[in-house]
Write a protein that binds this DNA or RNA. Structure first.
Lengths: 143, 143
DNA sequence: TGCATAATGTGGGATAGAGTGGTAATATAT
DNA sequence: ATATATTACCACTCTATCCCACATTATGCA
C-alpha cells in the first residue's frame, strides 16, 4: 500500500526516480495528471485510472462543469513508463503546472502518489500556514 | 496489551530497538507515522493501520481538510520491519518531524506505541508545563 | 549471594542496489 | 542535409541494508 514521503531530484530532462517502495504498487506503467486542489501532480495506477476514466466517460457532454473537469484531468493526463534505472519522464507542461524545480517530494497516499515541488511541500506542511491544526481537521472529519 | 515506557538509544542510521514487551503485540511488521497533537511518532499494528487507512480512503478527494489529513497521516506513514537484532529503521523525515536526537522514549498505549525524543518527553511530563493537574483532566473526562 | 548463562540492546563494517548525471543513438523538425 | 529534440543506454557515487561482533543487563542455578 502506497505511503511515506521521498525527496528526489528532478534532472534537466524532467526525469524523476520512482522510490523502490512505490514500484510494486504503481507498476511499470502508470498515469500522471494535474493534482486536485493544491499545486501538485497525481500519479495513478492504471487500474485506478481506468476507474476514474470510466466515471468521467459517463458524464454528459452537455454539462459545462463536466467538460471543464474532463479537460482538466483527462486532458492533463499522460501515460508514463519507468526506464531501466527506475525513473519516469514528466512532460514539460506538467512540470510547469506543478512548479517542479530541482527537488521534488513524492508522497504515497494509499491509492495514488503525489508529486510536489519540495519547497511548496514544506510550506504546505508548515502549521503556521494553516488556520486549524491537524487534530481539528481530524475531529471535523469524524475520525 | 501495550503499556509502559522504555528509554532507548537511536543510532546514526536511525535504528531503534523495539522493547521485547512490545514485540508480540506489534508484530514483526508495523506502521510508523506522524503523531497527532504533540511532536512524536505513532506506531500502529498492521491491523490497526488498515482500519485507519480504510476510513481515510473513503474521504472525498474534494474536501480540503481530508486531503490535508490524508497527506499528513498516510503521507507520513512508513511500513517498518524489525531486523534480526530487534530494531526498526525510522526514516529521516520522521526523525526530523519528531525531533528525535540521541535518546528516545517508547511509550505503550494499549493499541499503539508512541516514540518521543527523551528530552521532549520529560518536558511534557513536567507538571509545571501544564495549566491543570492530571486529576482535573480525569474529572473533566468523566473517569 | 555469587557466578554462569542467556538474552537484550548497541555499534560498526561490507556490499548490493537505489539514485543521479552524462553520453551515444535515434527520431523529428527545419 | 543539418540542427534540435527525444529516447535509450551506460557508468558512477552514495546510502540503505544486511550481517557479524561486542557490551550490558537480566535470569537461573548452585
Amino acid at each position: 500500500m502506497l505511503g511515506g514521503e521521498y525527496r528526489h531530484a528532478i534532472d534537466e530532462k524532467g526525469r524523476v526516480s520512482i522510490p523502490v517502495k512505490f514500484r510494486n504498487d504503481l507498476g511499470n506503467v502508470f498515469v500522471i495528471s494535474k493534482g486536485i486542489g493544491e499545486d501538485c501532480l497525481f500519479v495513478f495506477t492504471l487500474l485506478e485510472w481506468r476507474r476514474l476514466e470510466e466515471k468521467i466517460r459517463k458524464l454528459p457532454l452537455t454539462d459545462k462543469k463536466a467538460r471543464r473537469f474532463s479537460r482538466y484531468l483527462v486532458g492533463g493526463a499522460t501515460e508514463c513508463e519507468v526506464d531501466k534505472q527506475g525513473r519516469a519522464m514528466i512532460p514539460q507542461y506538467l512540470r510547469d503546472y506543478a512548479g517542479l524545480k530541482k527537488e521534488v517530494v513524492l508522497v504515497g497516499l494509499t491509492t495514488r502518489v503525489e508529486i510536489w515541488d519540495a519547497q511548496q511541500w514544506d510550506e504546505y506542511n508548515n502549521p503556521d500556514n494553516h488556520e486549524f491544526g491537524i487534530e481539528d481537521d481530524m475531529e471535523s472529519l469524524g475520525i
